[in-house]
Nucleic acid binder design. Structure first.
Length: 304
DNA sequence: TTCCAGGGGTAGA
DNA sequence: TCTACCCATGGA
């Protein structure tokens, strides 16, 4: 699909750079997102039209996302839903001005203020983000991509007119699926966690909207840790996706970046990351993340 | 065959 | 609170 083949568009304005939001972490490569030809694609689920594959594009340096909806025009209800989904995924309502003010005096983070960097892409729903977070646990990134693609193919609704494109599944089909159905997704030990998560959401036992309403990160973290399959890393990663940046999700990349020996415990990694970035307070993760981006782009090691 | 990856759960000390 | 062990998968 090419964005030029579209017959309707939607413009979404942001406070920050969509370019950095998309490329600063790997979420844009997880289905039903895909990155191709300098354009981000996503199969969105619209209330009236069902699954539609839209193209999201922007010019470098601008803060406007142009959403192209190919094929049949969508109505006002779908248009409003699509706008809300894009705004959520790009964090249109988040204000990073305080973080940028802190960055201006830091050599490795000044670029954040200059480029209006801070937001990181997230999925259209919290459910999708939790499932994807569980799929990052103890596996290579390429395996994460495969597992998420498998879930979409097995349980997601196909997008009419687009080959091999599926919306991300809702909790219902996952909750209703058997263990055998899940085996095809090749999730390994993660299958039982995701199945239980879906079942709890469908049963109303777990209210994911409550996570969005909870403004105290410590309380929210405890809520996240109540989900089987979500541990310290997963909880901090979900906090980040929900807009709380005070805790760093310590994975093997953090360990490598900070030069922490493989034999050091996960707790030790968390301690050292907290010591290093603690002065950034509620922006600790953003400081770590974008300092690492700066070092990678400039071919330098982690500064002391 | 062994190791490792964007770890987590559980039991036991 | 910490450690050891197990949990599936797949590529190197």
């Amino acid at each position: 699909m090419s964005p030029s083949s579209a017959n309707s568009t939607l413009i979404v304005r942001l406070r920050h750079s969509p370019d950095f939001a998309v490329h600063s972490h790997g979420w844009c490569h997880l289905a039903p997102f895909s990155w191709n030809d300098d354009c981000l694609y996503r199969v969105v689920r619209l209330p009236k039209s069902g699954p539609r594959c839209v193209a999201l594009a922007w010019s470098t340096g601008t803060r406007t996302v142009r959403v192209t909806i190919p094929g049949r025009r969508i109505g006002a209800t779908d248009r409003q839903s699509l706008r809300e989904q894009i705004r959520w995924m790009f964090r249109a309502d988040e204000d990073f001005s305080e973080f940028w003010a802190l960055c201006r005096s830091h050599p490795a983070l000044r670029h954040c203020a200059l480029n209006r960097t801070g937001a990181l892409l997230r999925s259209a729903t919290v459910f999708e983000d939790v499932v994807k977070t569980i799929c990052t646990v103890n596996c290579h990134w390429r395996n994460t991509k495969r597992m998420v693609t498998n879930l979409c193919r097995l349980f997601g609704e196909p997008c009419p007119g687009v080959a091999d494109a599926f919306a991300f599944p809702t909790p219902e089909p996952m909750a209703a699926a058997s263990e055998q159905d899940f085996q095809e997704a090749r999730l390994g030990f993660r299958a039982r966690y995701i199945r239980e998560l879906a079942r709890r959401v469908v049963d109303g036992e777990l209210d994911l909207n409550a996570w969005c309403r909870q403004r105290d990160p410590a309380v929210l973290r405890e809520m996240l840790l109540s989900v089987k399959g979500i541990g310290s890393y997963g909880a901090n990663h979900m906090l980040m996706l929900l807009g709380h940046y005070g805790m760093i999700p310590c994975d093997s990349e953090v360990r490598a970046y900070l030069g922490i020996a493989a034999k050091a415990s996960a707790r030790e990694v968390e301690r050292r990351a907290a010591n290093r970035y603690g002065r950034w307070g509620r922006y600790a993760f953003l400081a770590y993340k974008f300092e690492r981006v700066f070092c990678k782009q400039n071919y330098v090691d982690c500064p002391d």
